[in-house]
Amino acid sequence: MDIAEVIEAVGTAVDVAGVGVIVIGAVGATALFAYRVVSGGAFMEAYRPYRQGLGRAILLGLEFLVAGDIIRTVAVSPTFATVGVLAGIVLIRTFLSFSLEVELENRWPWQSRRSPSPGAG
C-alpha cells in the first residue's frame, strides 16, 4: 500500500466520521426532542433546543467533511484543477456553516451577544 492509498483511506475515514457525526447528532437531537414532547413539555419549548442541537450536529459534521476533502485533494494530487474544485467545495460548505451559525445564534457573527435588559428576569 503506497502513501496515496493511505491518504485516500484517511480522507475517506474522516468523511465517514463526518457523516456519522451528523447522523448520530440528528438521532440524538430527535430522541431528546421526542422525550421532551412526550414527557409533557410544550412543543414550541422543545422545538428550539431541537433545532439548535440538529444545527450543531450538521455544523460539526460539515467541518469533518471539509477536512476529509482537504486531506484527499491537497495531499494526494495538488493540481490547479483539484485545488480549484476543493476551493469551490470549501466555499459552499463555509457558506452553509455561516448560514447555520446565523440561524442558530439569531445574530450576525460581528454582533455582540445579546445580554438581558436591566430589570428583566
Rank of each mutant, 00 (worst) to 15 (best):
S77W: 10
S77V: 15
S77C: 07
P78K: 08
P78N: 08
P78Y: 12
P78G: 05
T79V: 06
T79P: 04
T79N: 07
F80H: 03
F80I: 10
F80E: 08
A81V: 12
A81K: 03
V83C: 07
V83F: 09
V83T: 12
G84W: 03
G84I: 02
V85K: 03
V85F: 04
V85G: 01
L86K: 05
L86W: 02
L86P: 08
L86R: 01
L86E: 11
A87S: 09
A87D: 11
A87C: 03
A87M: 08
A87L: 11
G88P: 06
G88I: 10
I89M: 04
I89C: 00
V90K: 07
V90E: 07
V90G: 01
L91C: 11
L91K: 13
I92C: 07
I92G: 08
R93T: 04
R93V: 07
T94H: 03
T94D: 02
T94M: 03
T94P: 01
F95H: 05
L96D: 01
L96T: 02
L96Y: 09
L96P: 02
S97L: 02
S97A: 10
S97P: 01
S97N: 04
F98Y: 13
F98E: 04
S99P: 00
S99H: 03
L100E: 00
L100R: 00
L100A: 00
L100G: 00
E101V: 09
E101W: 11
V102F: 07
V102D: 04
V102I: 14
V102T: 10
V102P: 05
V102Y: 07
E103F: 13
L104Y: 01
L104M: 14
E105P: 08
E105A: 14
E105K: 12
N106Q: 15
N106W: 13
N106L: 15
R107A: 11
W108D: 13
W108K: 06
W108Y: 14
P109F: 14
P109R: 10
P109T: 06
Q111W: 14
Q111N: 09
Q111G: 05
S112N: 15
S112L: 13
S112E: 14
R113T: 12
R113P: 09
